[in-house]
Simulated scan of single mutants.
Amino acid sequence: MGVYQIRQRRSMRGLRQRHHGRRQGLQGTLDRQELKARYRRYRCQPDGQPSGWTLFRLCQAAGKGRMAEESNSEPTEKKQIGGELVIPIAALIFTLYYFTTIYDSPWTAQVSAFFIGAILIFLIAIFLVKSARAWKAGEVGLGLDSLVAPRSFITKRLALLALTLGFIFFVQWGGFTITTFLFLGLATLLLSGGRRWRLILGLSAGLAIGGYLLFILAFDTRFPDGPFEDLMQPLDAMIERGF
Rank of each mutant, 00 (worst) to 15 (best):
G175K: 02
L190Q: 02
G174P: 10
R241W: 06
A68G: 10
G2S: 15
G83Y: 01
F219P: 01
G52I: 06
L30V: 15
R198Y: 09
L26N: 03
W173C: 02
T76Y: 04
F181L: 12
T54I: 03
L186E: 05
Q80R: 01
L163Y: 12
L184A: 13
E74V: 11
Y98Q: 03
L207P: 05
F99Y: 15
C44Q: 10
W135P: 01
R7K: 11
P227H: 04
I124Y: 06
E77T: 05
S146I: 00
L186V: 13
A162R: 03
Q33H: 12
T164V: 08
L144C: 03
L15H: 09
S112P: 00
F223Y: 06
Q5R: 11
W107A: 08
G210V: 04
T29W: 13
Q33T: 15
G143Q: 07
Y212P: 00
I124C: 08
C59D: 10
G185S: 15
L92S: 12
R9V: 11
G65I: 05
L186K: 07
T179H: 03
L199I: 07
F167H: 08
Q17Y: 07
G138N: 05
G226F: 01
P88V: 00
G143M: 10
K78Q: 09
R57N: 11
T180H: 04
L128N: 06
P50I: 04
G14L: 12
L201R: 02
I6H: 13
Q45Y: 06
L30H: 09
R32M: 14
G210Q: 13
Y103V: 11
Q24A: 13
I89Q: 00
K130Q: 13
L123P: 02
R9I: 14
P227I: 07
P227Y: 07
G28C: 09
G63S: 14
G226N: 03
A62Q: 07
Q49L: 02
E139Q: 07
P75T: 04
Q27R: 14
F122K: 04
R7V: 04
Q172R: 11
D220P: 02
R18V: 04
F115I: 09
A118F: 08
G65S: 11
M12C: 09
L186H: 07
D230A: 07
A91M: 15
S146G: 03
F181D: 01
Q27T: 14
L161R: 05
Q45F: 05
R198S: 13
Q27F: 07
K64S: 10
A149Q: 12
A187I: 10
C59T: 05
K79S: 09
A149L: 06
M238A: 14
R57C: 11
T101F: 04
T155G: 08
P234F: 10
G202L: 11
A218L: 08
G166Y: 06
R23C: 03
G14T: 09
G2T: 12
R40Q: 15
G138Q: 08
P50C: 04
P88M: 01
T76M: 05
I154V: 14
L85S: 00
G210K: 03
M67K: 05
R196E: 14
R18C: 14
A149V: 13
P227N: 07
A61M: 10
F183G: 02
L231V: 06
D230S: 10
F243I: 13
A162G: 08
I119V: 14
T54C: 14
C59K: 08
Y4W: 04
R16Q: 12
G141R: 06
R22F: 12
L163H: 06
D230W: 11
H19T: 08
L190Y: 01
F94S: 02
Y42W: 08
G48A: 12
